[in-house]
Each structure stands twice: as C-alpha cells, then as structure tokens.
C-alpha cells in the first residue's frame, strides 16, 4: 500500500485530480449544512448576476433559485449516480466476463455474443430510450447508465481472466481440488483487480457525463437538481445570463477531468511493470 501511494504520488496531475475529487465529495456531503433549504426554492429575484449578493454568490436562475446551492446539491447527484451506476455495471460485467474467460468455449461464445448485442447499439441512444421508457427517475437513470456501461467491463475482465487461466497457480489450484467458484473468486479475480479499478474510475467520469447529457435533454429526474439539468434549463437564456450555464459547465468539466487524472494515476501506480522500472 505504501509502495502504491509513493508511486501514485509521483504523478503530480493524479494527485491534483484526487484533491479535486475529494473536494467535490466534501461539497456534496456538506451541501445541506451550507444550504439547508431546497435548491429548488425561489430565494431571490430571478436573473441576479453572480457576485452581486453575498447570499447568492453565483447568482440566481430564471426562477430566482440559488445557483451555488444548485451546484452543491448537483455534486451529490453526480457523485451518487456516477458511483452507484458504476457499481451496478461492475456487478453485472465482472461475473459475466469472469465466467466467459474462465470456461471459454461455448460459455464464452454465448456470453460474448450477448455482450456484443449490447455493444452494437450506440450507448447514448440506448440510454435515452431506456430512460424514456421507464420514466425519468434516479433509479431508471442509474439502471440505464449501468446497462450501457457493463459490456466493456465484461470484455476487459474476460481478457484478463483468460490470460490468468493459463498460469501455473490456476493449474495448481485445480489439482488441489478447489471448486471453479473458489478459483475464480479467490485466485484469479484478486489478480485482475488493478485494471478493473482503473476502468471503474473512468466509468464514474463517463457516467457523470452521461447523466448530464440526459438531464440536458430534459430526461433527468425532475425532482433532483443536477448539473446537466441546470445547463439544459439555461440553454434558452444563454445570451441574457451566461452564469447559468458556465458554472455548472465548469463543475462538470473539472470533476470529469479530475476523475480521468485519478484514473490515469491509478493505472500507472497499479501497473507492476512501472513499479519494476522504478525499482
């Protein structure tokens, strides 16, 4: 762990990314303490520009709602949707990939054709259709993002497991009489966790982007304030009130960038080859 941290720390951009991610997490957790009233509450006159009133530092929107409060609560939504949908995608993708990679043959064929079926549909279009069918809600959005997110996980895990399957330690485990389930979960998966962690961090970022795009198109959960919704609602007034789209836009940009940097840092820190080079 210590060695991992020292490798990660060498990557300056990744550390900066991590700081930003932790900051966003802190804002998300602290949102109700800073802004006890709902971000939907109309608190001031509409279209108040930023920095004009200390109570609403980033101005107000078309209905006089506090933009800063919206950003803070939006952080919760983005992080929640990003992490939960990624966990769901992992829960689906990892077992399918592991089974396909471990057993090979017919099992592999069937599972991979099934995976490809999902991969051939453009993911954003599929997400739109799913959300539209199931009514926009937090639950349907998470499910939709997970459904378009799991196939790459399955393919990655399958490849990694396939490579491990040939190793001597797996043969030894089989000879020792361990069950297939034990071998997959106890022997192989711990060895392929690094690429999964890297992929997961990038998936959180893309899930945030996907949720923002859905909300921008008006397919967000109508009762949660999200960054994508804020930009979508500001689109028609972009010439009168720049701050309504700029602040949430910057929030999305920074968060996604930070998550990508962290992902890259993880990839390098967890890659055994890079550690050997440095040794």
């Amino acid at each position: 762990m210590k060695a991992f941290w020292s490798r990660f720390r060498r990557h300056k951009a990744a550390v900066a990314g991590l700081v930003v991610v932790l900051l966003v997490v802190a804002i998300a957790i602290a949102a109700p303490y800073f802004y006890p009233v709902s971000p939907w509450k109309m608190v001031q006159r509409p279209f108040l520009p930023p920095f004009a009133n200390p109570a609403v530092p980033l101005g107000t929107d078309t209905l006089g709602r506090n933009v800063a409060s919206g950003l803070a609560y939006g952080a919760r939504v983005s992080l929640l949707i990003g992490t939960v949908s990624t966990l769901v995608a992992l829960a689906v993708g990892v077992p399918i990939g592991a089974l396909a990679g471990y057993f090979g043959g017919v099992v592999d064929d069937v599972l991979m054709r099934f995976t490809e079926f999902f991969q051939t549909v453009p993911s954003f279009a599929l997400a739109i259709v799913l959300v539209a069918i199931f009514q926009p809600s937090l639950f349907s959005i998470i499910i939709a993002i997970a459904i378009v997110g799991w196939p790459p996980v399955a393919r990655l895990v399958r490849g990694e497991v396939m490579a491990q399957r040939q190793r001597e330690y797996v043969e030894a485990a089989i000879l020792a009489g361990q069950s297939h389930l034990t071998i997959i979960t106890r022997q192989i998966l711990p060895n392929v966790v690094s690429p999964i962690v890297v992929l997961a961090s990038l998936m959180v970022a893309s899930a945030i982007l996907l949720e923002s795009s859905l909300s921008f198109l008006g397919l967000g959960d109508p009762s949660i304030m999200s960054w994508g919704y804020m930009i979508g609602a500001a689109r028609t007034v972009v010439r009168q009130a720049w701050w309504l789209s700029v602040f949430p836009g910057v929030a999305i940009l920074i968060s996604v960038l930070a998550l990508n940097l962290v992902g890259e840092g993880l990839a390098e820190a967890l890659d055994p080859r890079s550690s050997r080079d440095q040794a």
């Binding site: 709902s38 939907w40 209905l63 009514q135 009762s223 609602a233 689109r235 028609t236």
Partner: peptide, 28 residues
C-alpha cells in the same frame, strides 16, 4: 417548452412550501 417546464417547477415548489408532497412526472 422551457417556459412551461420552469412554471411547473415553480408550482411544485409552491406546493412543497405548504407541505404538499409532489411527484413530478415528465414526459414528451
């Protein structure tokens, strides 16, 4: 369109301010 959606949000907020719980259902 936008005006009608913003209006719906304002009405929902008005109702929640007096304690009515509103489930907003959006569709095309």
């Amino acid at each position: 369109g936008e005006t009608w959606m913003r209006w719906a949000e304002a009405i929902k907020q008005n109702l929640e301010d007096v304690g009515i719980k509103v489930d907003m259902i959006t569709t095309d």
